[in-house]
Design a protein around this nucleic acid. Structure first.
Length: 220
DNA sequence: TCTAGCGAGCTCAGTACCAG
DNA sequence: CTGGTACTGAGCTCGCTAGA
């Protein structure tokens, strides 16, 4: 296979979610392609229903769009940073970009050690690593990856809803998500298989007595 | 009515600091 | 030197408000 050298943007979706997968996406494009014109930007400012349409346009102009999906069980067994390192190293190894621009998943002070570890894992690919906080906002190629990750995660969520029932988008702040976990716990006596059991929120949801005790203790 | 902007509240991980 | 804790900052979405 002939390597198509280009710029790779990497971003993830679902990091803070309680239910559903963590998705890491990479978009490889030739340098010079104006993805901003196509709508590539920080996915947080794009309405959910428009993301798919923009991604479709972007996909027609880039060399490759790849995603890695980690289940809730995998998130339970590994740190989020470890999983992201794994996906990023695999994306770089497979797509062989000359430059990879990554939305930093770690504290700015931790970027040097994160970059060193990623470089160790990518070996002698010669890739230039650019790790930047809020890169999805500042680099259209990372914005495109951000959109891809969110669209793919949304797709997974829709499939999971069909199988397990409605649970919102899986974030702790959503009532639907919390209600779903509570109901499942009451009905099944265990956590749903799509739930990240080590999240602190889970303990509060399935142990209302403890939570009540805590709220009573801190109140009044 | 729709969209954009901002803040709130949730998560985790890395670093710095302090006590033993 | 080691281990625990606090702080900081990254991610995520939702909900409210203002303006077009």
């Amino acid at each position: 296979m002939v390597a198509l050298r280009g710029v790779l943007g990497i971003d993830e979706a679902g990091r803070g979610a309680l239910l559903g997968p963590l998705v890491v996406a990479g978009v490889l494009a030739p340098e010079g392609v104006d993805l901003e014109v196509l709508g590539a930007c920080d996915s947080k400012v794009v309405p959910r229903e428009k993301r798919k349409e923009i991604l479709h346009r972007i996909a027609q102009e880039v060399l490759s769009v790849k995603v890695w999906v980690f289940t809730a069980a995998e998130v339970d067994d590994n740190s989020l940073t470890e999983l992201e390192l794994r996906a990023m190293a695999a994306l770089i190894a497979e797509l062989k970009p000359y430059r990879a621009i990554i939305d930093s998943p770690v504290n700015p002070r931790a970027i040097p050690s994160f970059a060193e570890e990623l470089r160790r894992r990518t070996g002698d690919t010669g890739v230039e690593l650019v790790i930047h906080p809020k890169a999805d906002r500042d680099y259209p190629i990372v914005g495109a990856a951000s959109l891809a990750a969110k669209v793919i995660r949304d797709g997974y969520v829709l499939v999971l809803r069909k199988r397990y029932g409605y649970f919102g988008w899986g974030y702790p702040g959503e009532k639907a998500t919390r209600d779903f976990v509570r109901r499942w716990w009451v009905r099944e006596g265990k956590l749903p298989p799509i739930c990240r059991s080590r999240w602190a929120t889970v303990g509060e949801l399935i142990d209302p007595v403890l939570t009540l005790g805590k709220s009573q203790g801190t109140g009044a």
